[in-house]
Amino acid sequence: MPASLTPYFLIAQRLGVALITLVIVSFAVFFATELLPGDVAEILLGQAATPEAVAGLREAMGLNQPGIYRFLHWFVGLASGDLGTSYVNNMPVADLISGRLANSLKLAGVTTLFAVPIALSLGIGAAMWRGSIFDRLVSVLTISVISVPEFMVATLAVLIFAVWLGWLPALSYGADVGSWSAMLKAYAMPVITLGFVVSAQMIRMTRAAVIETINTPYVEMALLKGASRSRMVLRHALPNALGPIANAVALSLSYLVGGVIIVETIFNYPGVAKLMVDAVSTRDLPLIQSCAMIFCISYLSLITLADMIAILANPRLRH
């Protein structure tokens, strides 16, 4: 194979691995939800239901068919975009999710837009001036942010900005988002809270990755050529640290879709995470499965994207 094709081959390979992982995960998700305690038909009909009624409903819902058959049926539907019908309110799962997913993605997108550039500059800056006051300040702050649980950050933010100062609305959703300033206000608190949570890890990983490349002989060589500190870091160290940084960013961001239940609850924000928790409490299997698959897809695509960046950033693979 010509050398110039290798990166594309590797990328195709990564995409293939991602697809296979997805199939395996869907299998796991389907059968794990099957293991949830309680029988759907019994729950739906309530405690007073006669055994005949339960059996009838099970038959009607296709619950008596073998598991593997139901899995295939579900998987084919999933692949063709049919997420099934909610057990609880008979609505198509796709309809239930779509609005919520848009909300979640909007929140995640705004957070990414703010958190990633800030985190990367702080991390790179801390590495560039390692050992300085700035570096120590950043380190102490990131460690304290990591160790403070997010509900604490969120609650404190509400207490200070909404209750005491009255600057920002306590609830984000349904607030007036007619203008830019109103939208900024509405999103400020959840974004700040989430930003805190995801940035800390990104800052630490970026700093570590850049410092590791700063200690290489080629960065010392740049110093001995008379390069300034910023040239050493930005031109020589950073391009070689892209792979690990992309991975750290992807790992942190993957948290923004599925892991934000606390923030969604505190700010009463109707996202997918909250939808899934509600679905678990009502044993709404199709909804749970679809939510789990969405989390998995977002996680996988972020990781695969980071892998692809790492491959493309490596000149040994490109040339």
Binding site: P217, Y218, M221, K225, H236, P239, N240, N314, P315, R316
Partner: peptide, 14 residues
């Protein structure tokens, strides 16, 4: 400066 190991002193990405 001419380094001990040129292989390590050249930036692999440039």
């Amino acid at each position: 400066y001419v380094p001990q190991s040129a292989a390590a002193a050249f930036n692999p990405s440039q």
